[in-house]
Design a protein around this nucleic acid. Structure first.
Lengths: 598, 598
DNA sequence: TTGTGGGCCCATGGCCGACAA
DNA sequence: TTGTCGGCCATGGGCCCACAA
């Protein structure tokens, strides 16, 4: 099985005309699967690449490493050399491989000088797929019901959809039926029995449907797309419900790390202005980190201020577009230490309809439209009238003297006060001891515990050092469980000790086990520390001690690296990890911090 | 599920006495699964480590790299710091993690001076497991029949085995039954319904058995072991039939590369005399590369000569020991370039019973016992009488002046004449061009083609340089196909050009795709070049050109690294490899050469 | 003594219309 | 118009003994 070239629209490379047509169909299918909100940049156009967002969406070891070595500006202007449409073999998830080359700084200079319209062509996004799909309306998308995915029955085809997309049946027959031959994004063939029966009569897919559901691991809530080309060829795609996409190995990240440029390679390519590749999954995250130049430049110097109202489009669960409104509650870099001046999700917002609690409270300027005045520049008088909440405005670019200090963000940033203030002081300690040398090496660990620690604090206090003599008791660390977020203590005293606590806001976190095959993969681990909020608990005998942990300042996600020590035989630790067979184990996890209340 | 510490025999670290007992049981179980021929060195003893054999058993990228950088003597004397018994999570395959430290050269010096009995204790192997299992005969091992593994029925327990290992049943009842609770090497619990029924009555495992077979992916021919500890606790293990163990990811090699010291790290540790770890699977290969010192030293300077007869033990398919006899047909280093003076599989042999064609025709001196005179040193007079074939004896240690020349091995080594003569002259060229820069970089490729090349030849000729202007036409490169061995030309002219040719001796070769998950893994590729033996063919348009290849002198295996160039859209190349999406692809493969006739 | 196969029961998959939202 | 349910049948898993090697 090979990966079908979804990009044959360019022609030239593809000799056979039939294949080219299939390519066009695939291109449409790709966009259909990607959803209405996804648009890709055109080949040859200029985009803005935000490494910050790229790292944020990259999970695991690769991201961890990149976060420390990535020394690139927050906004990189790139020329799009090539756009390749792809689909995950395992999940059918669509993604694009973008080949980019960093542009010279003159372009950026022009932008900073206010020449925002230079080289800005609003039409530069790749709307081929969209317009093409408008030209061929023989497509439908249905969110699967419980009955559709049950083993008990088949797939109920909406009448309009069947009449539109499937070859017509002879309705004069008692139970007209036919066999549908379809191909997915990979070119794999799927055959279904299409029958028109029942009382009242309806279109159903029976034989073959169950196998499809099983193979694609579809669950109710996922959506299937059927698409008929002009030549009558049927294609089908799937669009999964937003769910656990965080299986590292089923995501394009895998390729990213293994076969293409790793993040560190990207960093190198940026500095040398050579080409690099990005596997870009626009559905993986609501915030894009590849932005058309015109879109970015229009917003770069826009005078946002707290209180402004705005609109923003989301994709609803049934893959439809939905407009939401909200108000800007704060402005400020999400990571002023590492990415000062970045616009990546620099706007803090509150939504008018708070029904969806999980929605992000940080957006990037180019994601939103200002209410009332969409494209014009300075007509926010009307916006000011609507302002209901008055919060102190914060200057966007915060100076970072010495690279280690940072300013007070004001009250509007209070919710991230503690966590963003954390910084690493050389804690990346790997202890590869073993039975033979563990005793002599334990002194090193103790040194680490006493001397080095995580520095944290905020502008109200000086840095506090937390030693590592403290240890956490680890309870069951079992396969399939989830990792809980690091929570700040409930009392806001700056001297409180960070702790691991079982919380309600848990983020399914796939531990990145480098190259582990599917059978052995650790899908998630869970741990919880003391339940008392004030102080971490000392472990008794047998448990695993926390010898160190490590926090980074990456936006909206943080990372903890635990060095555990303890007998794997103990009841208090049990982990599907071969390295636990040794006396030490290291656990690295990345999880979101953005939803932590303080 | 965690990895049970199988090594609790040491005590001390493990607090609970019950767990310690379980550890003892696991140790026995480990040895039972490993088979009767496997013995591990004792902690603290001295062994001889043969990097050559280690590399030979390590497949893939890691081995490829190690083969070029490993700059260690062929025999390294090491102190065993620790021995950890392990079992593969995926396959239950047993292996051991050995922690070794290279000893000073004085020990080796003593050996070379003939003090073969110094520090040589024949009792130094770890026979705890064996003797313990002799002390607890409550164990049985049964090779699974078709009925045992069928979904139709359960597991038929041999009567003696059931009476020996299982708790007694009340035979007065109509159909006595009980539930057996067993644990495997990982501590995972398996419950079976044990019933005594049928006409005639017999012991059966019914409920639970099928799940076990499915989960462990047992097939008929595999064997299961049941073992009852003194406390009545039941353990079970499996011993798979020799089969496709060549799934890279299911082998301990994975850990080797990822979590522990890689081979290159071992090379470093050897030079600095620091500790290194080896994941040692004694069942993976018939030849051990970790040898007890006494065993090695007894044979190191032994005056082997062609014609000597010997005995050797093998494990038969039903896990029993079997003695085979043969005659030495030649003596010589398997790789005089890289490992001069190595004793690793330096004896060429012919077996008396040629029923098993696949048996190796090279053995190491310590693997065999000389017929008639086993332990005494110089009584090979009787052996000489038996000599039937007279071949010229070859001196074992061949001088390698300048590190690049080599001597004629004599007629007995003729079969490896051409291939062993090859050597690399700095060919490891990786071309990571891309669309943007491929044109300007092509000159580099041409430079490579004209200037650098593989040097090959033998003692009869001077070195011949083969340029890389030549190119091979690649036909279908498809998933699932196999790679064919590199064959020397059929005419023995030393100026012949090495070529890729479709041959009868193909070796299933797993391409090592670093960290690829199971679905995407390239299981094998095939290629064939021109069918005319004298000259490689020039490719026409569209095909893939061979820009370079690379041969190493590793024993019994060789390696070719191909740098391909060509459009992946062309009909002549199609590969399940995403990197082919670029203009270049690199293919690396390792395969055996030992069975190539010339 | 034990490997294989047939008999039998039952759980599940899967196709159907009934019914109602 | 279409989601869910009960009816119904086919298939296969799994427990039983018969028979024979």
């Amino acid at each position: 099985m090979g990966i079908i070239d979804l990009n044959a629209i360019d022609g030239g490379e593809c000799a056979a005309a039939a294949e080219e047509k299939a390519g066009v169909l695939c291109l449409e299918l790709w966009h259909a699967c990607a959803g209405p909100l996804v648009s890709l940049p055109r080949k040859g156009s200029v985009v803005v690449y935000l490494p910050q967002g790229h790292i944020e969406q990259t999970v695991g070891e690769e991201s961890r490493r990149a976060r420390t070595v990535f020394d690139a500006p927050p906004h990189v202007f790139c020329r799009v050399i090539d756009v390749q449409l792809r689909a995950e073999v395992a999940t059918d998830e669509v993604y694009a491989q973008l080949s980019l080359v960093a542009e010279g700084e003159d372009l950026e200079q022009r932008l900073r000088e206010g020449m925002t319209n230079a080289d800005a062509d609003e039409d530069e996004t790749d709307d081929i797929g969209k317009s093409a799909s408008l030209g061929t309306p023989h497509m439908f998308c249905k969110t699967l019901t419980a009955s559709d995915t049950s083993t008990h029955g088949g797939f109920s085809v909406p009448r309009r959809a069947a009449e539109d997309c499937f070859p017509p049946l002879d309705y004069k027959q008692q139970r007209p039926s036919q066999e549908l031959v379809t191909k997915d994004l990979h070119g794999t063939e799927w055959r279904f029995r299409h029958i028109y029966r029942g009382q009242p009569r309806r279109h159903l897919l029976t034989t073959g449907w169950s196998a499809f559901v099983n193979k694609k691991k579809l669950v109710s809530g996922d959506a299937v797309l059927f698409m008929r080309g002009d030549n009558g060829e049927l294609r089908l795609g799937i669009r999964r419900a937003a769910q656990l996409k965080n299986t590292v190995h089923s995501s394009p990240l895998y390729d990213q790390t293994m076969n293409l440029n790793s993040l560190s390679t990207v960093a190198g390519a940026l500095s040398t202005k050579s080409m690099f590749h990005i596997l870009y999954n626009p559905r993986a995250s609501p915030s894009d980190y590849i932005i058309p130049y015109w879109k970015f430049s229009k917003r770069f110097n826009y005078p946002f201020s707290v209180g402004m109202r705005f609109k923003m489009c989301f994709e609803t669960e049934d893959a439809a577009e939905r407009r939401c409104t909200g108000v800007i509650t704060g402005i400020g870099d999400i990571d002023p230490i590492r990415w000062p001046g970045s616009k990546w999700r620099c706007l803090m917002v509150r939504w008018d309809d708070d029904m969806d609690r999980s929605r992000t409270n940080r957006v990037s300027p180019w994601e939103i439209e200002l209410s009332g005045s969409v494209s014009s520049s300075n007509s926010f008088a009307s916006i000011s009238k609507r302002t209901k909440i008055s919060l102190p405005s914060v200057k966007a670019d915060i100076p970072v003297p010495g690279g280690r200090d940072f300013s007070d963000f004001g009250e509007s940033l209070r919710f991230q006060k503690v966590l963003q203030g954390q910084e690493i002081i050389g804690l990346r300690t790997s202890y590869d001891g073993n039975y033979a040398s563990s005793h002599q090496s334990s002194s090193d660990v103790n040194n680490l515990g006493n001397g080095v620690g995580v520095m944290f604090g905020n502008s109200d206090t000086s840095y506090k050092s937390m030693g590592f003599g403290e240890s956490l008791q680890f309870h069951k660390v079992l396969q399939g469980q989830e990792i809980f977020p690091l929570e700040a203590p409930h009392n806001s005293s700056p001297s409180s000790v960070l702790m691991f606590q079982q919380g309600s806001t848990h983020v399914p976190c796939n531990q990145s086990m480098h190259g582990v095959n599917d059978r052995d993969r650790v899908d998630g681990i869970s741990y919880c520390g003391s339940r008392e909020p004030s102080r971490v608990a000392r472990t008794g005998r047998g448990g695993c001690k926390l010898f160190g942990f490590h926090l980074t300042n990456a936006p909206a996600t943080s990372e903890v690296e635990l060095t555990l020590s303890g007998s794997p035989l103990s009841n208090e630790m049990n982990m599907e990890d071969r390295s636990v067979g040794h006396s030490e184990a290291k656990v690295s996890a990345v999880y979101a911090l953005c939803s932590i209340p303080i």
